[in-house]
Amino acid sequence: MTDPNFRAAAEAVLPGDEAGPVFREPWQAQAFAMAVALSAAGHFSWADWAATLSRKLAGQTAEADADGGGYYRAWLAALEELTDGRGLTSPDERSSRQESWAEAYRTTPHGSPVNLPSD
């Protein structure tokens, strides 16, 4: 189950309007959903999350948010730091996986779904 406290607290600080958060691009909603799901599974608390996210936001320059996506880039950076910090992922593993996805996009012929090759 989703931790209602985390979700409510997370929604409250998201860029949005009176009806709730607004995402400008799909990846932002994916990053949001991962944070909610991991906290629901007990991997981190709202307090840990808020501290990490605010540190990432504080370290961001004004230019980084020129396109309005800065908030979610900070969100993603906070998520990566927490999953690495909890031993759920590692930076090497993430960057190697990222390269695998890029390679899969480069080499998959159009008309075929992009899937990661099995290792």
């Binding site: 990846w27 991962m34 996986r97 996805w101 890029a102």
Partner: peptide, 12 residues
Amino acid sequence: VVLRVKALESLL
């Protein structure tokens, strides 16, 4: 940024 999200999501 999209690739980073995909990487993290697929690992998790």
